[in-house]
């Protein structure tokens, strides 16, 4: 179990960070040139479609990070794994960032297409609730820093938040909303033309790399903080 010693883990994290740094700008330039220049305009929205290349991946990332956080927190509550606690703590701000990004870009897209910045329909409201859950989650870390009750409160928040996730996903199918239904389905064909799918997935890759970079840096900081408290093993 030497792999999990502090020295080793920091070396591996540093290697990862260096690797991502070396390819990040290349992927970013390719992704952006596809999204902004090479990809065609939409037949109806014109150039506004390019907002989708940031909006859709950010929303996906926001949702999936909360799912990971919820699972991690519940495991931490049951099995008391200290490492999971650091993991969740480093992930939460990234999820908040991308949820906010999805809401802001969605709003920017909504003005020219729908004619309004915001509508209280089921999809938009449930997304706002997700953002609030992220905020609660992060505030709880700050307030109950070393309290015994921290895991309990965190798991309560993540249970409630996790129930919200399928509501966000299926809100556009269950209820009448202003937001359009999902274009990309796990099973079946997507209703986005393939020339627009390429920049979409490239931007997803860019944002995922960015997530990984920020996560590793934050995780490293958390590990160093613990090391300073003189605990020998995770």
């Amino acid at each position: 179990m030497d792999f999990f010693s502090f020295g080793n883990i920091i070396v591996y994290i540093d290697k990862f960070i260096k690797f991502i740094n070396s390819i990040f700008f290349l992927v970013l330039i390719i992704g952006l040139s596809f999204a902004l220049i090479i990809s065609p305009i939409d037949y109806l929205q014109g150039d506004a479609v390019r907002i989708m290349y940031v909006h859709v991946p950010s929303a996906w990332i926001g949702l999936s990070i909360f799912s990971i956080i919820a699972i991690g927190t519940l495991f931490n509550f049951v099995f008391k794994i200290k490492n999971l606690y650091l993991f969740v703590k480093s992930l939460a701000p990234i999820g908040l960032l991308f949820t906010c990004l999805a809401i802001v870009t969605g709003s920017l897209w909504g003005k020219p297409t729908w004619g309004t910045w915001w509508a209280w329909d089921a999809r938009l409201t449930s997304m706002l609730i997700l953002m609030l859950f992220y905020v609660f989650f992060i505030i709880t870390f700050k307030i109950f820093k070393d309290s015994e009750k921290l895991p309990q409160i965190l798991s309560a928040i993540s249970i409630l938040g996790a129930i919200n996730i399928p509501i966000i996903k299926y809100s556009v199918e269950w209820w009448s909303t202003l937001h359009q239904p999902a274009s990309i389905k796990i099973i079946g064909t997507s209703s986005i033309h393939s020339s627009m799918l390429v920049p979409l997935f490239l931007m997803l890759l860019v944002l995922l790399l960015y997530c990984a970079l920020i996560f590793l840096m934050k995780y490293k900081t958390e590990i160093i903080k613990i090391k300073k408290k003189n605990i020998k093993r995770l």
Binding site: P40, I41, D42, Y43, L44, Q45, V49, M52, T113, W114, G115, T116, A119, L178, Q180, P181, A182, S183, S191, I192, H193, S195, M196
Partner: peptide, 17 residues
């Protein structure tokens, strides 16, 4: 007193249309 346009889930370039 307010009209909103609804967009469907289809995205494609003008030539495809």
């Amino acid at each position: 007193d307010r009209i909103l346009a609804k967009h469907d889930e289809n995205y494609m370039p003008p030539e495809m249309k």
